[in-house]
Design a protein around this nucleic acid. Structure first.
Length: 129
DNA sequence: TTTCTAACA
DNA sequence: TGTTAGCA
C-alpha cells in the first residue's frame, strides 16, 4: 500500500473535517453538492473523508476567499486537474495552453487588477482601455 | 452524541 | 450560510 493510496483512504467524519478545514458542516455538505469533493459513505450513510478530500476542501476555501464564486472554483479546479494529467507527459506548457490560462484568469477576475498569475506579463495587453 | 436530509422567521 | 426539525 503506497502513500498515494493511503491519502485516499476514507477516514474522517464531518466533525473532524470541520476542525481540519475551519469550514462549517453546512459548507462542507454544500461544496459536496457542487461536486467539489466526493467523500465516501459509511454503512450508516455517514460521510467519510480522506486526506485528499481535506486538502481539496482547504483549496476550495482558499479560492473562495480570493473572491471566486462556485463556478469560478469549479473552472479553476478543472484546469488544475487538466494540468496535472498533462504535466505527467509534458512538463512545459504550450503557448496555446498558456493563452487558455490567461483567458480563464480574465473570465474569473472581471476587470482583473488584483493578484494575477500574469501580472506585468502579456496580461495588460488584454485589459480594457 | 453525532451526522443526515430537507427546508426556511 | 445559519439554523432547525425529526431520524438513524
Amino acid at each position: 500500500m503506497d502513500l498515494e493510496s493511503r491519502k485516499q483512504l476514507p477516514l474522517f467524519s464531518i466533525g473532524i473535517v470541520e476542525k481540519l478545514t475551519g469550514l462549517s458542516a453546512r459548507q462542507i455538505r454544500y461544496y459536496e453538492q457542487h461536486e467539489l469533493v466526493k467523500p465516501a459513505r459509511s454503512a450508516g450513510n455517514q460521510r467519510l473523508f480522506s486526506f485528499v478530500d481535506v486538502e481539496r476542501l482547504i483549496q476550495v476555501s482558499a479560492l473562495l476567499d480570493e473572491g471566486l464564486n462556485m463556478e469560478g472554483v469549479k473552472a479553476r479546479m478543472k484546469r488544475l486537474v487538466a494540468n496535472e494529467t498533462q504535466d505527467k507527459k509534458q512538463s512545459e506548457p504550450t503557448d496555446q495552453q498558456v493563452f487558455e490560462r490567461m483567458r480563464q484568469e480574465m473570465l474569473e477576475h472581471p476587470g482583473g487588477s488584483g493578484s494575477s498569475e500574469f501580472q506585468g506579463d502579456l496580461f495588460r495587453f488584454y485589459r480594457k482601455r
